[in-house]
């Protein structure tokens, strides 16, 4: 295929990706160094209240946004360097908290709080997802042929459901005196409030995430299990390998590329966790990095969106993803080069 035909086929797609992914990236990078604000002016306002004999008048200085001839607020964009990053990171306070060892102070700064949660969330759910996925895949593989179809159907439900609705359905089971909280209270004979402190909410969020992603991992691993070499399994049995040893030395190494694939997809997706915070309405206790950016982008009570701070936190989130993915990517890169 010559270059012109190739370009004609691929062109529209590349154009869309450039326009809607690469260009916004560049513009976010640029925005994070600029800040757009309304210009304020100080005016003397005289307010008079009617009184006996004379009015009592007070003049005070009020700062108000300047308006142009159409009555719209004049804004000015200026270069502020790293100021937006500093606003998000608050490095001085953070550093003081770290040197004094006051971790609870560090967690009052939104960004560090979000970073702490996002990273622990990603890293704790990763082995759980891979483990559960592998377990379910082995179970499905063991099952009788006639029930495999229905079982896969049921397993797909948590994966296919709208993430927000999935979070909400878990939320409704536990919120207040939801059915599972009530059952737990009856079992333990004590009052349980799962939404009153951060760590229980975090556990629920991780539970949801594993419930949501494990089916995906399971289906992928199940497909991989179909291609395990039966002869090597049989020779392992003849050599006296136990079930566990066969699993460890034959099946898992065979599935290794798939495990890396699932882990990479999971790392990407878990690091941008967002629906959990909205669905559990946990912004008072637990927030994630992507939610932080979202929160900056939502207009506040005065109708202003803090675009530059959002851009800064978005760039910082991206740096996080790059750091997280650099090791698995380097590994696949080496495998790719070694394979050819």
């Amino acid at each position: 295929m010559n270059f012109r035909t190739f370009a004609a086929f691929v062109g529209p797609s590349v154009f869309m990706m450039l326009l809607f992914i690469a260009f916004p990236l560049v513009s976010v990078f640029k925005q994070s160094f600029y800040i757009t604000q309304p210009i304020y002016e100080t005016v003397e306002v005289e307010t008079c209240t009617p009184g006996f004999l004379t009015q009592t008048c007070t003049t005070e200085e009020v700062s108000q946004p300047k308006l142009d001839e159409h009555g719209e607020v004049i804004t000015r964009t200026e270069y502020v360097g790293l100021q937006s990053y500093l606003n998000v990171l608050e490095p001085e306070r953070a550093w003081r908290a770290i040197t004094n060892g006051e971790w609870n102070v560090l967690s009052t700064i939104d960004f560090w709080k979000a970073l702490r949660f996002t990273v622990t969330f990603t890293l704790i759910t990763l082995p759980l997802v891979v483990g559960c996925g592998l377990g379910i895949a082995v179970l499905i593989n063991n099952a009788a042929k006639s029930i495999k179809g229905p079982v896969i159907f049921v397993s797909l439900l948590p994966f296919i459901i709208t993430p927000l609705i999935g979070v909400l359905s878990i939320n409704w089971l536990f919120r207040g005196d939801g059915i599972l909280t009530a059952t737990m209270e009856w079992w333990l004979q004590r009052d349980i409030a799962l939404f009153a402190q951060a760590w229980t909410i975090e556990i629920l969020m991780m539970l949801y995430r594993v419930w949501h992603v494990a089916p995906f991992a399971a289906i992928v691993f199940y497909a991989g299990l179909q291609t395990v070499n039966q002869d090597s399994l049989e020779s392992a049995v003849i050599d006296g390998a136990t079930r566990w040893q066969r699993m460890k030395y034959i099946v898992v190494p065979h599935l290794m590329p798939l495990i890396i694939f699932v882990s990479m997809i999971h790392l990407m997706d878990a690091f941008r966790t967002f629906e959990e915070v909205v669905g559990f309405s946990s912004q008072g206790y637990v927030i994630s990095l992507q939610w932080l950016t979202y929160d900056f982008l939502v207009p506040d009570q005065a109708g202003n969106r803090s675009i530059s701070r959002a851009s800064a936190s978005a760039m910082l989130t991206m740096i996080g993803i790059v750091i997280l993915l650099i090791f698995p990517l380097r590994r696949t890169w080496r495998d790719h080069k070694g394979g050819h």
């Binding site: 990236l25 992507q290 969106r305 978005a314």
Partner: peptide, 25 residues
Amino acid sequence: AFWILIIALIFRALPHSVLVAGYLP
């Protein structure tokens, strides 16, 4: 073609909030 695919893979990892921050203004 290989590089387009790799760059697409990197784009897949981007948080959507990053992109939305770029679109909004």
